[in-house]
Design a protein around this nucleic acid. Structure first.
Length: 145
DNA sequence: GCCAACGTTGGC
DNA sequence: GCCAACGTTGGC
C-alpha cells in the first residue's frame, strides 16, 4: 500500500464535486514527475485530497480505483501523445471531520520534510506512511490503515 | 494583486 | 549545452 496526495483547486474541481460524482478521472496532469507518480499508483492506494489556492489544506481521503491509462483528453492529439500523459481514477472514502490546513502542516515539525512543502508546485506526490498517519490524526479521522 | 519557485522554450 | 525570457502554480 502506497500513500499519495493530489491537489485540486476547489473552484475548478473540489471535494464536494468529487463526492457528487462518486468517482473521478484524474486528468490534466502535465508534468513529468507528477505523471510518473500517477503511473506508480496501485489500486487501493490511499490518497489525500488537497485543496489548493483558496483555503489550502487536506480535506478528505480517497483511494485509487483504477491504475494509470493514457489520458483520453489527448487521444486525438498526436502532438501530445508523445509525452505519454496518463490518468488514474479515484473514488472518495471520507471527508475529514477536521480539514488539515496548510498552516497546521507547516507548524508540525514531524511534517517538515513533506513533499507538499518541499516541492510546493508538484500536484501529485507520494506521502510517507508516518506522514500520512499523522495527517489522519490531525484530521480526527478514525480509519483503519 | 504580488511574488517566489520552478518548468519550458528558444536563441545562440 | 547554456541561459534569458516567459508562463504557470500556488501561498500570502
Amino acid at each position: 500500500m502506497n500513500y499519495w496526495l493530489v491537489k485540486s483547486e476547489p473552484d475548478v474541481y473540489g471535494w464536494d464535486h468529487f463526492v457528487k460524482q462518486g468517482r473521478a478521472v484524474w486528468d490534466g496532469v502535465r508534468n513529468y514527475q507528477a505523471r510518473n507518480n500517477l503511473k506508480a499508483m496501485q489500486a487501493g492506494d490511499e490518497v489525500l485530497f488537497y485543496h489548493s489556492v483558496t483555503k489550502p489544506g487536506v480535506v478528505g481521503l480517497a483511494r485509487v480505483c483504477k491504475t494509470a491509462y493514457p489520458d483520453p483528453t489527448v487521444a486525438d492529439d498526436p502532438a501530445q501523445q508523445k509525452f505519454g500523459w496518463v490518468v488514474v481514477e479515484l473514488e472518495p472514502i471520507m471527508p475529514f471531520e477536521q480539514p488539515v490546513a496548510l498552516a497546521r502542516i507547516k507548524a508540525e515539525p514531524m511534517l517538515a520534510n513533506i513533499g507538499l512543502i518541499k516541492q510546493s508546485r508538484l500536484s501529485v506526490m507520494p506521502i510517507r506512511p508516518d506522514e500520512f498517519e499523522l495527517i489522519l490524526k490531525m484530521a480526527h479521522a478514525n480509519v483503519a490503515l
